[in-house]
C-alpha cells in the first residue's frame, strides 16, 4: 500500500503544476495556535497559504467560510490555495484543537 502511494505520488509530481504565480503567505502552527492568527490578504486575488505544522500532532486546517479542509500531519507543511475573495472576514480553525487554534483571513 505504501509503495502504491509513493508510486502514485511520483506520477503526480511530474504533472505540470500551473500555480507558480500567486503570492505565498506563511502560517505556523505552534502549541496548537496559529501564528499569525490574523492573515490579511488583498481582495480578488488568489493566495497560496503555506501552513507549517511545528507541533508533533496532526492538525486539520478547516474553514466553512473558505470551504477548505486539509489535514496537516505533525511536523510537516501543507499548501492551501484560497481566493480570489471579496472583502470580509473569513474565520478558520484547526479542527483537532479548535479551542486554541483559531484565526481569520481578513480580505481588504
Amino acid at each position: 500500500m505504501k509503495v502504491i502511494l509513493v508510486c502514485f505520488g511520483l506520477i503526480l509530481s511530474y504533472l505540470p503544476v500551473a500555480h507558480a504565480g500567486p503570492p505565498v503567505i506563511e502560517i505556523e502552527i505552534r502549541d496548537h495556535l496559529f501564528y499569525p492568527d490574523t492573515v490579511p490578504i488583498p481582495a480578488d486575488t488568489k493566495v497560496k497559504l503555506l501552513v507549517k505544522n511545528l507541533d508533533p500532532t496532526a492538525e486539520e486546517f478547516e474553514s466553512y467560510e473558505l470551504n477548505r479542509e486539509k489535514v496537516i500531519a505533525g511536523n510537516s507543511e501543507a499548501i492551501i490555495f484560497i481566493g480570489p475573495l471579496p472583502a470580509g472576514e473569513y474565520p478558520f480553525f484547526g479542527e483537532f484543537f479548535p479551542k486554541t487554534a483559531q484565526g481569520k483571513v481578513v480580505v481588504e
Binding site: 505504501k2 505520488g9 503526480l12 503544476v17 486539509k70 500531519a73 501543507a78 499548501i79
Partner: peptide
Amino acid sequence: VNLGQVSMMAGGTGQE
C-alpha cells in the same frame, strides 16, 4: 501513517 508524505507530493497537493 503516510499522510505527511502524501501531502508533500504533487507540489504539496497530494492529499487533495
